[in-house]
Design a protein around this nucleic acid. Sequence first.
DNA 1: GAGATCATGTAACTAGTTACATGATTTT
DNA 2: AAAATCATGTAACTAGTTACATGATCTC
Lengths: 185, 185
Amino acid sequence: MALDHAILVSLLEKPGSGYELARRFDRSIGYFWAATHQQIYRVLKRMEGDGWIDVREVAQDDRPDKKEYSVAAPGRAALTAWLHEPIEPETVRHELAVKIRAAAFDDPAALVHEVERYRRAHADRLTRYLAGERRDFTGPEAPGTLDAGQELQHVVLRGGIAYERMTLDWLDDVLATLRRLGSPR
Amino acid sequence: MALDHAILVSLLEKPGSGYELARRFDRSIGYFWAATHQQIYRVLKRMEGDGWIDVREVAQDDRPDKKEYSVAAPGRAALTAWLHEPIEPETVRHELAVKIRAAAFDDPAALVHEVERYRRAHADRLTRYLAGERRDFTGPEAPGTLDAGQELQHVVLRGGIAYERMTLDWLDDVLATLRRLGSPR
DNA sequence: GAGATCATGTAACTAGTTACATGATTTT
DNA sequence: AAAATCATGTAACTAGTTACATGATCTC
């Protein structure tokens, strides 16, 4: 279960409330580990009970009060232990691949519009990643001035960018194949 | 919930027992939708109860008897309905990306060996995909002789191959980054 | 005053994982 | 006789999704 660990990493990078974590999971860390606010609040409560994280009530003038969480020593130890565990192969769940194979028993051309929409969503995501890269990793600094945390965030982001580019190319291949099957010679 | 639909597709491609389905989910369709035999038996029971699939007891001489499942009309209708639903964006869960960001709070170089092992697993997977492609899609047939089902299976496999190649390249980038951070100038 | 954003939760349900269990048949 | 493969399942637990619920504060 890596949601615990994803939250711990996010809180180590910067302490924050459940609400703030939920927003980070809509971008940044959430690009590689999805979670909703319901999940996050539940896990925060459990980790607080286990002493992995500390809470601090923060009164705010301009907004509702919040609870600010930060990582306690046992949480940090748990993260380190997890980091040294073997990396399990990811269990893939690729719904579009199943749909493409299902299309053999229906009209392949009928999928074209949905795949086009799906392709646009990935193109948007690539645009967002590239904007994030420009914003965070091409400042005026000379190479070598980034700290380890930034270097590691950057290599993860480069992975996201490579994934989106590969996906867009593959979706073009899918669309060409579907169109070809839809209008047979 | 696409496990239902993945099973329906697999049974349309070829009727079979729960055991046989479990083996197909270890390869072929399972490359894009993972499932264990426990999950499969549970879903088969439910779909049978709903009339989506038919069962036939098959006595076998050389092995234990089995139940052969095949898709019934309501199951096929359910699959078609699902196929016409909008494609939801995939929810990503990329544990390695979380670990890489976590490495900023530990020793980045300590991850190197695990990433190397992970890279080998992906290299093996690519080898298997390429072997499957050679076996199933480069026969003596002239282009255009494959049926729609085969063409669609091939484009899905090409996606898997593209994914593995992209992943291997990215893992090289990750390894270079980790090594650089482990031995700072 | 209405709608947006900030903030935190509960409840019910669905899906996925892990551990356990049994028995037939085949091969060594 | 033991180990491997074929075959089917149950039970308990963990994780994830969907729907519902409440209230503060801010902006228009």
